[in-house]
Design a protein around this nucleic acid. Structure first.
Lengths: 228, 228
DNA sequence: TATGGTAATACGGTATACCATAAGATCATT
DNA sequence: AATGATCTTATGGTATACCGTATTACCATA
């Protein structure tokens, strides 16, 4: 065998619709708790019910939508306890990935990670927070890949989907001085100096910080709802 | 309010089909790599294609089936690396749950956990390994619940689905002396004595042990395939 | 017998129409 | 104002048809 298998991209309608809806949920065009009525969705997207329904099943399994019996799907909501749990799991998985990455890194990681960090620093004051989020994701993706923790990465990404609103909130918060950046630098340095323990700690600090801000947001939101 | 909410079982066809297929994959009636052809499935289950397809989307998101482009769904396969990763994640999540459970347990946990352990000891030599597996699941479920880690529990259960074959293999292995039991006792004792660190270690030992056996199995299987 | 071409088949991907039922909203009635 | 009847909306589920593509089986030919 000399030739490698030819890679066609048979992207199905499902894949597209899935991406679209995920996107819409991520940047809040579908608010949490909002109903996802099938037929209007079909019209908006210009696809049949079959496609929409299959997509909804998929997103349901991902935890992005919830099904109310005999009522249909709604965009999943998130309370403070769930958020806490999610950040806690992320802390574990990302910490472990960083540690593993620090240990087993190949010689081509250094440049790539540094480049990712640079992009991050460029995008930090960008008005397009989406870009910054994406850069953050890419930074962590590198770490997970190098660590060989791709299943954990899948899990983390899925969890991130469920807290996407929080992530944008914490990023776009004007009162925040974005201390995240210093953490990222710490993570980068620790990994490149092959210090597993320090890398893990840096990640855990980063997440703990984010979790705290998220918690504050949710607290305010819930308080606001009470006497709203 | 005096009367409690009446629990209708709005179990949809989808739910049933989902449970059936998951079951079938779990106990190997659908072998890994086997194709899941829609129309025959519809006939076997007596439902329409829509239901089957929606189910498949859900199981796809769970990682239980894979979709091959232009070919359709197959039962997901598992290689050694993936198994290693899954056991690694389980080690983290279950360890953390045990630690948290040891700390924040209420006074009604003791009896329940002890009862679960007893059931476990009864079922250990049962010819119906399914029962033993179920008892194990219940034991851990108690721990996660008490710890308040229900999202992590979802993740663990999903991961367990992907290694279900391995779990039955490790349990039904005649050469194994089921050292799992002693670990379970250690976990139980550590939690009841509120020793978080010891509980975590006990869990980690338990999983490490299982992972090792699973790894041996897969190694043999892969070697067997090579010159088979 | 090996090669190449072609037809048949199988199956996923997609669309549409239909029915039954549950939940919610509206409105009339007492 | 509580009750009850009715209408509307939308889901849950089914059946059916169509297209495109991949695989397979078959056949002809060199």
């Amino acid at each position: 065998m000399i030739l490698e298998k030819i890679e066609k991209s048979p992207q199905t309608l499902r894949d597209i619709v899935q991406a679209r809806m995920r996107e819409a949920i991520f940047d809040g065009r579908f608010a949490p708790g909002e109903r996802l009525v099938e037929r209007p969705l079909c019209e908006q997207l210009g696809v049949s019910r079959t496609v929409v329904r299959e997509t909804i099943r998929y997103l349901e399994a991902e935890g992005l939508v919830e099904i109310i019996p005999n009522r249909g799907p709604i965009v999943a909501t998130l309370n403070r306890d769930q958020a806490r749990q999610i950040y806690d799991i992320r802390r574990q998985l990302e910490g472990a990935a960083a540690a593993a990455c620090a240990q087993k890194q190949g010689r081509d990681l250094g440049p790539k990670l540094s480049a990712a960090l640079t992009t991050l620093q460029e995008k930090i004051h960008d008005t397009q927070w989406v870009d910054f989020l994406q850069a953050t994701t890419h930074f962590y993706e590198l770490i997970f890949q190098e660590a060989g923790h791709n299943i954990a990465w899948d899990i983390v990404q899925r969890l991130n989907g469920r807290i996407s609103r929080l992530r944008t909130l914490t990023i776009t918060d004007p009162t925040r001085e974005r201390p995240g950046m210093s953490h990222m630098v710490a993570i980068h340095d620790a990994i490149l100096s092959r210090d597993a323990q320090r890398a893990q700690l840096a990640v855990e600090n980063h997440i703990a910080d984010a979790a705290q801000i998220a918690n504050r947001f949710l607290q305010e939101a819930e308080a606001g709802l009470d006497h709203g």
